[in-house]
Design a binder for these strands. Structure first.
Length: 522
RNA sequence: GCCGAUGUAGCUCAGCUGGCUAGAGCGUUCGACUCAUAAUCGAGAGGUCCUGUGUUCGAGUCACAGCAUCGGCACCA
């Protein structure tokens, strides 16, 4: 949470799934689905470890492949012949953790979510959203459904997690994926209660105008486009006192592809990773945010490289936007008596560039809504470049000598464009937006505060990251910058990076980490 | 193996329902400027649009086949 706070990622409420609230609602979901006939019971055979006294998931099992007789086949798939396997058919199955352990096949009973019942409704849901979804998400989900939905077990023989609320099922728990996605719902209920308006969550879930977006990685697509929808359809009307407004389904599930590091996949265990708490000690949050946003894997996998970080931060963020803001704020502060210049009238060029920056509120706003974040960022940066080009043409540093009014007009126009850009870029660069806001002489904070709050329930407590917007003055609105407004003394928005960071950061990749030096974020 | 996505300048990526003399940013070359963190501005060079076959007056865009990368394939969260 500390890391998210430092990065400026805001949530109305970022909470846990191990709360009483979440447990209670997840159990209510389960019972309602059961009552309505969307769950069924079935016995299945699984491998059981007599020493560990528990059933082992396939991934913890190895044995001889019953197809090609490769001796090291995994429980779910054989790496030699590539076939998907049934773990209970493995020859001489053994536990990975404990190879001498004897595994036996035992029968166990579980509840299954009967996804097949939802097939027509799910397909209809998909088709009605396909036009604004990313192609991969739609195609993948459609295919997942058309392959035929099977019942999915939603309970497990484990001793941690949410208890199954039925007599005789005390030894079993709800399957994590069945209940984890409910966090979207349960968190909103918790939030409503926390702010003292227990029904406020309905403005998301029972409001046909609300649009729910779930941001995920591509590996989680079916959970967020099929299973969660089925669960929601199944509990339609829950907690709504007989009102027949339908429970809202996600409007968009903009799954991202994967971001690699220096050409290879992230791996925590091999420390092929970037530790946010670490790099937040060394770099500005906005620099990190800029690079990640600019290389976001929106439609294909992308790569986080330190050389890329270095060049994009220096040549784009610092050189284009940071420099534009700094050069004009400094110029105005030094040459116009520390004030936003006064001018008699704006010329055509000034009107044009201001109008263009104002029009961007619509275009960038729309791009953000459709989650075209790369394009949204690019659109704002195009404007930055245009502002720089305008300055080269108008040259206020020259005109100020013999035509101060002309210079004033130019500087005013660009300050106003900068004021607009501050807001247009704020979703990406909130911290530097705040700086620009202050240098321009405004009061107050653009964004509210992110607080880490301790919540007490009857038997336990948990922390939440909570956004308090009461002090926020930032709005998605055009600038109304007043001539004569007193500026504050500016300084550069961003720190220019030294080339040495590239080799330095690369040297940390894959190296042994000294755990004592880790700044733990959460 | 099956399914899906992706494959376009050195790098990162746009190109929706076929009309492109294939675009942008960065890098690179040349020139200009000096208000600014040696930042900025202008001009130029740079591409058998993964491969092959086909449909079409016309294909980066459609179809089929293949190759490569990534993900999913249901008890891993």
């Amino acid at each position: 949470m500390l890391t998210q706070q430092k990065l400026g990622i805001s949530y109305d409420l970022f909470t846990h799934t191990d709360t009483e609230n979440h447990h209670r609602i997840a159990q209510d979901f389960f019972m309602l689905l059961l009552d309505r006939g969307y769950l069924y019971k079935e016995a299945q055979k699984l491998l059981y470890s007599e020493t560990e006294k528990r059933f082992l998931p396939d991934r913890y099992v190895e044995g001889e492949c019953y197809i090609c007789h490769y001796p090291e086949a995994r429980g779910d798939q054989c790496d030699n012949c590539g076939n998907l396997l049934d773990a209970t058919l493995l020859i001489n199955p053994r536990s990975k953790a404990n190879p001498t352990d004897r595994l036996v096949t035992r029968e166990t009973e579980h509840y299954f979510l009967d996804l097949a019942q939802f097939t027509p409704a799910l397909l209809e849901y998909l088709e009605s959203h396909a036009s604004h979804w990313r192609p991969n998400v739609t195609a993948f989900s459609r295919n997942f459904i058309n392959e035929g939905l099977r019942g999915r077990p939603i309970t497990r023989d484990i001793d941690w997690g949410i208890p199954v609320p039925l007599e005789g099922w005390e030894e079993k728990r709800l399957y994590v994926w069945f209940e984890a996605v409910m966090g979207y719902f349960t968190a909103s209920v918790e939030w409503a209660r926390n702010i003292g308006q227990p029904d406020a969550w309905k403005q998301w879930w029972y409001n046909p105008d609300a649009q729910i977006y779930n941001f995920i990685g591509k590996d989680n697509i079916p959970f967020h486009t099929v299973i969660w929808q089925a669960e929601l359809m199944g509990v339609n009307g829950i907690y709504n006192d007989g009102d027949d407004t339908p429970l809202q389904l996600p409007y968009d599930v903009p799954a991202n592809e994967f971001m690699n590091i220096e050409g290879k996949q992230f791996s925590k265990s091999r420390n092929w990773a970037i530790w946010l708490p670490d790099i937040l000690e060394r770099y500005q949050a906005d620099a990190i945010r800029y690079y990640v946003a600019a290389t976001l894997p929106e439609s294909r996998d992308s790569d986080f490289s330190w050389e890329g970080f270095f060049t994009r931060v220096n040549n784009e963020l610092v050189a284009a936007w940071g420099n534009l803001a700094n050069r004009m704020l400094t110029f105005a502060y030094k040459r116009f008596d520390g004030k936003v210049p006064s001018y008699d009238a704006l010329g055509e060029k000034e009107e044009a560039i201001i109008a263009k920056s104002e029009a961007a509120f619509d275009s960038v706003g729309n791009l953000l809504e459709e989650v075209s974040l790369l394009e949204a960022l690019k659109t704002s940066f195009d404007l930055v470049r245009e502002a720089n080009a305008y300055l080269s043409e108008r040259e206020p540093w020259k005109t100020i000598k013999d035509n101060p009014n002309d210079a004033a007009r130019s500087v005013y126009a660009i300050l106003r464009v900068i004021d607009n850009l501050k807001i247009l870029l704020a979703p990406f660069l909130p911290f530097s937006a705040q700086k620009v806001h202050e240098y321009l002489g405004y009061e107050g904070q653009l964004f509210g505060d992110l607080n880490i709050v301790l919540y007490q329930e009857s038997t336990r407590s948990h922390q939440g990251l909570v956004y308090d917007g009461s002090k926020a003055v930032g709005r998605w609105q055009k600038s109304n910058l007043q001539a004569g407004q007193a500026l504050r003394e500016p300084s550069p928005l961003f720190i220019k990076l030294d080339m040495s960071i590239v080799d330095l950061e690369r040297s940390f990749l894959g190296a042994v980490r000294d755990e004592h030096e880790i700044v733990v974020g959460q």
